[in-house]
């Protein structure tokens, strides 16, 4: 009598030739069914992504490295600092010197495309989640799953639906990279202080005016932190994406491992790390309000030009 229940569970869990709930079979069946019936849809989704990706990549490959370096330096100086500009340019020169320039451009185009896709999908979802507790509650487990599910698990169905190559690479990168953007957009909007919201409401703002005049600008530093996180996660997917024939730095690592060529793998890996550092510092600096309180026109190269032209406003010194 007192062994009946343990025996039952032993029999239930250990002595069965087939599972009681054949979850694996079900999922296979569902994926197969989606693949046979809806492949056309996913092939259609391919088109805009692949066009964007190819366009960006073609552009980045066509730009002479010197021009790229110059643009990067000016951009970093304007929106971050002169120090970061120098650092970024030196880092990218190093990438070129170790022979990883073309691969870096390919990977950069993949990261840009994936992050743009993240923004297009993630911002509206984040806004929706911030506006409704119900949406937030229903999105949250999905985001948890997207971040914790091992990428290899969804790699196969994605390949079945999209085939191999760059586009499924963008898709898996997107799946992994979009959750923090949604989360941080949601948090950023919800963090706007109650009194600020009340003040805007008391002047008769519509929900749309509230969003664009108050919530989005005030959430922007948090949202940019989300973009930063997305970029970092996208870069960390580069090697996995190379398993489904995505070219670039990830492929260098992948090939290096396959041929036991430690040098090649290290070059690819170093390229990824350097890109990550540069992109991280840049996006972080853009998200932070400048310490000196100058407007963008008075800073960086634009400020330097305006100073030489004598148009620069005096630095505000008076404090009340």
């Amino acid at each position: 009598m007192d062994t009946a229940i343990p025996d039952f569970f032993n029999w239930l869990f250990l002595n069965q030739s087939t599972e009681i709930i054949p979850l694996g079979d079900w999922i296979s069946t569902i994926v197969d069914w989606v693949v046979t019936n809806f492949r056309w849809f996913f092939q259609l989704v391919r088109v805009p992504i692949s066009q964007a990706l190819n366009g960006i990549e073609a552009f980045l490959q066509a730009v002479p490295p010197l021009v790229f370096l110059g643009a990067l330096g000016l951009f970093a100086w304007q929106f971050a600092s002169r120090g970061l500009a120098i650092f970024s340019v030196l880092a990218m020169i190093f990438v070129g010197l170790i022979g990883a320039w073309p691969e870096t451009m390919t990977t950069l185009s993949l990261v840009i495309t994936a992050v743009v896709l993240c923004a297009l999908v993630g911002l509206p979802l984040g806004i929706a989640a911030a506006r409704s507790d119900r949406v937030e509650a229903s999105i949250r487990p999905v985001l948890d799953a997207m971040q914790t599910l091992p990428a290899f698990v969804y790699l196969v169905p994605v390949v079945m639906l999209f085939g191999t190559g760059k586009v499924p690479g963008v898709i898996v990168t997107f799946i992994f990279a979009v959750p923090p953007l949604i989360r941080l957009t949601n948090i950023g909007i919800r963090q706007v202080s109650e009194e600020t919201i009340e003040a805007a409401q008391s002047f008769g703002s519509t929900p749309r005016q509230m969003l664009w005049e108050i919530q989005m600008p005030l959430a922007m530093p948090t949202i940019l932190a989300g973009v930063n996180q997305s970029i970092m996660l996208a870069l960390s997917m580069v090697v996995i994406a190379s398993l489904i024939a995505v070219e670039g730095l990830g492929q260098m690592v992948n090939r290096g491992i396959g041929r036991l060529d430690v040098g090649l793998a290290a070059v690819g890996g170093l390229g990824i790390v350097i890109m990550a550092i540069v992109l991280d510092r840049l996006t972080q600096a853009i998200g932070k309000p400048p310490k000196d309180g100058l407007s963008w026109q008075d800073r960086g190269p634009v400020g330097a030009i305006r100073t030489t032209l004598g148009k620069r406003r005096r630095v505000p010194t008076a404090t009340p």
């Binding site: 009194e195 600020t196 008391s202 008769g204 005030l218």
Partner: peptide, 22 residues
């Protein structure tokens, strides 16, 4: 109509100012 009333008839000053910092 409430928004209209808020825009034209009532305005409010808050304890901790409620200014828009941006």
């Amino acid at each position: 109509r409430l928004r209209e009333v808020r825009r034209t008839k009532l305005s409010m000053v808050f304890q901790r100012f409620g200014l828009f910092p941006h």
